[in-house]
Design a protein around this nucleic acid. Structure first.
Lengths: 342, 342
DNA sequence: CTGTTAGCGCGTTCAG
DNA sequence: CTGAACGCGCTAACAG
């Protein structure tokens, strides 16, 4: 049988209340008594039963997710994963709420965060935009005791407790290597489609891609980045024009969203055997089908379900001051070919 | 506030004990009463607090892992992950025990399983060997109420509740596609090293590999499989001889363990630019370094830590008759290049 | 068949 | 500064 608070009390010759005060680092215990209790805790190897503690506190974690709205397939999938987590949350003393914000709107985001200060949640997971007012607001929430987790897009610095997302530089490097090795011959021109060069994820991916592709194949020519704003229509227009202009394109790297437009452009171009090697990000119904039809050669993915579950685990752990299992919370860069689709 | 058993009792006009009997499907309740209680449960939307229930029961899950001994790097890593889980298990009302068995020894395995019948654990995770006596023993344990999870190597059929491992056929297909696309020119001879063609994982991987590689490059010639018994020394001898004999080998697929031997043979051969494309399984310290030194081109991996944690979650859930989150328990086929190493 | 009561391990009053 | 007593949501004896 595992030792309990009673055992500590007995071993230290004090009462339960005193043990509790020591355990929860509350004032009102003489230093000597405290030392005695702590010694007893160490000696008998006590570990607190968090389940029982939470029951006694009737603690219920209030967790908030802030995600950008819009019809971006990836974000839609992310929302779906959060909804599933909400469905399960009743079982787990957890109240999860989602707040939608317009994409790429720091002012609005900061406003929402200020609102939260009135009733600070135990945890906040946020698809962050890198702006001073956002960082300031997060900082204040942290002061108020909220555990802050950045989701998908990171924000370097001390204003967050954890990042639930992938290493985008490594993802770009991986795409570069795959591109270099999938091409049938060295050299050639490579097109790159991004959402916007203003967000860090996309910058990092591009930098990684350039780096590793040039290393593998110095002869390659990487064309100017096309920015499609993650909008299928814009991406379609850009890629169509590019395919017309550039005869015999060797490859296309789509590092943002809006892949529906890319796929449509590829189909319309009706390329044959010499089709460019295409690498895209995020497994959605569209990219999945394109992979099966061999229109896309590889998809790099971040598992939104894993990100959401991980964010929840981390927020709870941080709220309780508990350690997290690093390996479990590492979000992998998934590589999908037509052969290993889930 | 969430409804509790008290609320049910009040709503149904019965006592707590009766509610408890209904909730736990225990006998001793008239059908009519039972119906009333069930109606009330549905009406007020009650969900049982498992943490409180487990506390009251002072339930503690006893979980057993059975893994083959030996110095195979992958299995060593698996054991390490189990040990970490054991270190955490004190916090989670879980007693985890590991039993080592000699590898590939069905008789011994069956014996160990028979021993367990005396005091059936709540859950059993086993790296299974596909043999009738093993299956029979597992079947009996299931009868006794043990949740059975196969680990790494599956056993098709109803004698297990869950498989914590990868789809090896898909893994082989993925390796085949990577091989076909990483080769600089079509055709050529490909060597395959396996542990033993008697285990299912290896059969499946080979079949998948053949399938997809032939589809991508029909001109390729796949040499006879070399069986190295997952033993570095044997693998080294086999590969060395093969490299000597086969001048200008286009690729090597190592679908088993013992990669230390493969790597040593590659180094000794001192191949230059025309070195074969090498694809191996399982990320270990050795394969990781070989990937960094560009001796190996890609490593397919199953995350042992994920497998262990997943097995534990599933055993607990099955023991409680709770549902599992399928997506969370799916073990991915990780693809590692030099760019995305964790 | 049904109800009463005493805990499970911990947190939190409210007296001393 | 310290201790006794009650309750969190649920289970399990033991009565009725």
């Amino acid at each position: 049988m595992r030792p309990t608070v009673h055992d500590i009390a007995e071993a230290a010759g004090v009462s339960l209340a005193t043990v509790d005060r020591v355990l929860n680092r509350r004032p009102g215990v003489r230093a000597a008594t405290r030392a005695r209790v702590e010694e007893a805790i160490g000696r008998i190897g006590f570990v607190r039963d968090m389940a029982a503690a939470n029951l006694a506190k009737s603690r219920s974690y209030s967790l908030i997710f802030i995600v950008p709205g819009g019809d971006n397939s990836f974000m839609v999938g992310l929302r779906a994963e959060i909804d599933e987590a909400i469905a399960r949350s009743a079982l787990e003393r957890t109240r999860i709420r989602v707040i939608d914000v317009p994409p790429f709107d720091p002012a609005r985001l900061a406003l929402v965060l200020r609102e939260l200060e009135k009733d600070p949640p135990s945890g906040l997971a946020i698809v962050a935009v890198d702006a001073p007012e956002v960082i300031a607001a997060l900082d204040r929430l942290k002061e108020l005791g909220t555990a802050v987790v950045t989701l998908v897009s990171d924000l370097a610095g001390p204003f967050r407790d954890h990042f639930a997302g992938i290493d985008n530089f490594a993802a770009g490097r991986t795409a570069g290597t795959l591109m270099g090795r999938f091409k049938r011959q060295s050299g050639g021109r490579i097109a790159v489609v991004a959402g916007s060069m203003l967000v860090r994820d996309h910058q990092d991916r591009l930098a990684g891609f350039r780096h590793s592709l040039r290393e593998i194949d110095p002869m390659v020519e990487i064309l100017d980045v096309m920015e499609g704003q993650d909008d299928p229509k814009k991406v379609h227009a850009l890629v169509s024009r590019c395919l017309e202009r550039e005869n015999g394109l060797a490859g296309i790297y789509s590092l943002g969203a809006g892949n529906r437009g890319l796929i449509r452009a590829l189909k319309e171009a009706g390329l044959g055997a010499g089709k460019p090697v295409v690498i895209a990000h995020e497994l959605t119904p569209h990219t999945r089908q394109a992979l099966q039809e061999r229109l896309i050669d590889a998809v790099l993915n971040q598992d939104a379900g894993h990100e959401v579950r991980s964010a929840i685990r981390v927020m709870k752990a941080k709220a309780d001051g508990l350690p997290v299992i690093e390996a479990q919370e590492r979000i992998r860069i998934d590589i999908f070919l037509n052969d290993n689709l889930p």
